Computed example of a mutant assay.
Amino acid sequence: MGVKPRVLVMMATYRGESWVGEQIDSILGQEGVDVTLRICDDQSPDGTFSICRSYANRFPNIIATRNEMNLGVNDNFMQMLYEDEAGDYDYYAFSDQDDLWMPNKLEAAVEMIEAKTSSEEPALYYCDLFNVEGRNESRELYQFSECERHPATVLLRNYINGCVMVFNRSLAQIVRSYRPNHFPRMHDVWLHMAGRFCGTVIADTDHAYMKRRITGSNVVGKTTLNPGSIGETIKLALLAFQPYDRVQSETAQLFYAGYDKYLKPEGRRVLEEFLHYRDSLDNRIRYSGSRSYWLPSPEALLRMKVGVLLGFY
Score class of each variant (00 low, 15 high):
P151M: 06
M193V: 12
P151N: 09
I202L: 15
C147A: 15
C198M: 02
T153M: 11
W190G: 08
H207V: 14
R212G: 06
H207G: 08
Y159N: 10
N168D: 03
G199I: 00
T215H: 04
R169L: 10
V201A: 09
R149A: 15
R196T: 14
H192G: 05
K211R: 14
M165W: 05
R212L: 13
N161T: 12
V201M: 06
P151Q: 06
Y159Q: 08
I160K: 02
F197Q: 09
V175I: 14
A203N: 11
I202N: 11
F167T: 00
R157G: 10
P184C: 10
A172W: 00
Y159V: 06
D204Y: 02
V164D: 02
H187Q: 15
Y178T: 02
L155A: 11
V175D: 04
C198K: 03
G195Q: 01
A208S: 06
T200P: 10
M165K: 03
F183E: 10
M193P: 12
R212A: 09
R149V: 10
V201C: 09
H150L: 09
I214N: 00
N161M: 15
A203Y: 13
N181Y: 13
C163G: 14
T215I: 01
G162M: 08
I160W: 02
R213Q: 06
D204M: 03
R213D: 01
S170N: 08
V154I: 15
Y178M: 07
L191D: 01
A152L: 11
M193L: 15
C198S: 01
K211E: 14
G195T: 00
T205G: 12
M210Q: 11
F197H: 11
V189Q: 07
L155S: 07
N158G: 11
N158S: 08
L191T: 03
C163P: 08
P180T: 01
Y178P: 02
V166E: 01
S170F: 09
P151D: 10
D188G: 05
S177G: 01
P151K: 06
A203F: 12
H182S: 15
H187D: 15
T205W: 09
A194V: 04
H207T: 13
R196I: 07
F197W: 11
T215F: 03
G162A: 03
L156A: 12
C198Q: 00
D206Y: 08
C198D: 04
A172P: 07
N168V: 02
I174E: 01
D188H: 02
A208Q: 01
R212V: 14
A208T: 01
V164Y: 04
V154S: 10
A172T: 00
D204L: 06
L156S: 09
A172L: 02
Y159W: 13
P184K: 06
I160H: 04
N181W: 13
T153P: 08
V175T: 00
A203V: 12
A152E: 12
T200G: 05
Y209N: 11
V175N: 02
R176Y: 03
A208D: 00
V166F: 09
C147V: 12
S170L: 06
G162L: 04
P184A: 10
R169N: 11
T205A: 13
R213P: 04
K211G: 07
P180L: 08
P184V: 11
L155Q: 04
